[in-house]
């Protein structure tokens, strides 16, 4: 089984919104809060849209992921008042499908874990193929003509046939539904607005150069990620903070946003920007 990936969708419902004004700044603010609340629960966070992110749960795979997701749900709800939905699966397509299932079926109580075959098959057999992430209207029509109406039927479609209908995209989708991650390729990414490369350090970092070095690595990694998706960035945010779980120690955190003009995916430019933002924020000690 591949990496369990986890999709979270936040719904700014009326109850949560009542105490706030409604504007785009607020959405951005709430998104930052949600990301901060989930940070402790994932090794990597990929922001898919303003209210959806993929979380890499690989390091937590041997734990009870439903309990893990519930703890995360609680933390997001507590910090932000926002209720979320969580879908867990071995691939992004399945995680997204699990998320939709968590929404549709009250059985899941907001958290659907589709890593087990039996439950996954049960859900897939009842999931309309047109609702699968990446299946457009035209493709759904073609599939319907072949008698493929559920996600389960699409999963069982021979690869060659899938390629014939929907090019390589549909073929990848079939693989993803079978639990095989389409290696580092985004199947559909119409609204990708941001990505994060968060890390924790094993020990304490008290040396500025060490921190800048680490930051440089992340900037490089961010550049790699951008290029692998054929994207460029217009803005870079760097942040670092002391260990929040050691409250008895002095705390410090900083965040800087740097505008990138022109937009870039060049690691060296990202690195320079990260240094520009990071250096003045560093405090010795």
């Amino acid at each position: 089984m591949g990496d369990p990936i986890h999709l979270i969708r936040d719904r700014l419902d009326r109850h949560g919104m009542r105490v706030m004004s409604s504007n785009y700044t607020l959405y951005g603010d709430m998104q930052r809060r949600v990301l901060a609340a989930v940070e402790d629960f994932a090794s990597e966070v990929e922001i898919y849209s303003i209210d959806e992110s993929f979380l890499d749960l690989t390091p937590f795979a041997d734990r009870d992921l439903v309990a893990h997701a519930n703890a995360m749900w609680d933390q997001v709800r507590r910090w932000t008042t926002i209720p979320t939905r969580v879908g867990i699966g071995p691939t992004k397509t399945l995680a997204k499908l699990a998320n939709a299932a968590a929404k549709k079926n009250p059985l899941f109580d907001g958290v659907a874990d589709l890593r087990e075959d039996a439950l996954r098959n049960w859900v897939l057999d009842r999931f309309p193929v047109g609702d699968v992430w990446g299946v457009g209207h035209a493709t759904a029509g073609k599939l319907a003509a072949l008698g493929v109406s559920t996600a389960g039927q699409l999963r069982d479609m021979p690869m060659k046939q899938a390629r014939g209908i929907g090019t390589v995209v549909l073929e990848r989708l079939v693989a993803e539904l079978q639990g095989v991650p389409a290696s580092a390729v985004e199947i559909v990414e119409p609204q990708r607005k941001g990505m994060a490369v968060p890390r924790s350090f094993g020990g304490y970092v008290s040396d500025k150069e060490a921190m800048m070095g680490a930051m440089a690595q992340y900037a490089m990694r961010a550049g790699e990620k951008l290029r692998s998706h054929g994207l460029v960035a217009g803005q870079l945010t760097i942040f670092f903070h002391t260990n929040k779980h050691k409250r008895e120690r002095p705390q410090y955190g900083a965040q800087r946003r740097i505008r990138l003009h022109p937009m870039t995916a060049d690691s060296l430019e990202l690195l320079a920007a990260a240094r520009r933002g990071g250096e003045p924020s560093w405090r010795d000690g």
């Binding site: 809060r33 901060a36 955190g253």
Partner: peptide, 9 residues
């Protein structure tokens, strides 16, 4: 940061 020790919440 002295006033706000937990910005996300």
């Amino acid at each position: 940061s002295w006033l706000i020790d937990h910005p996300a919440a």
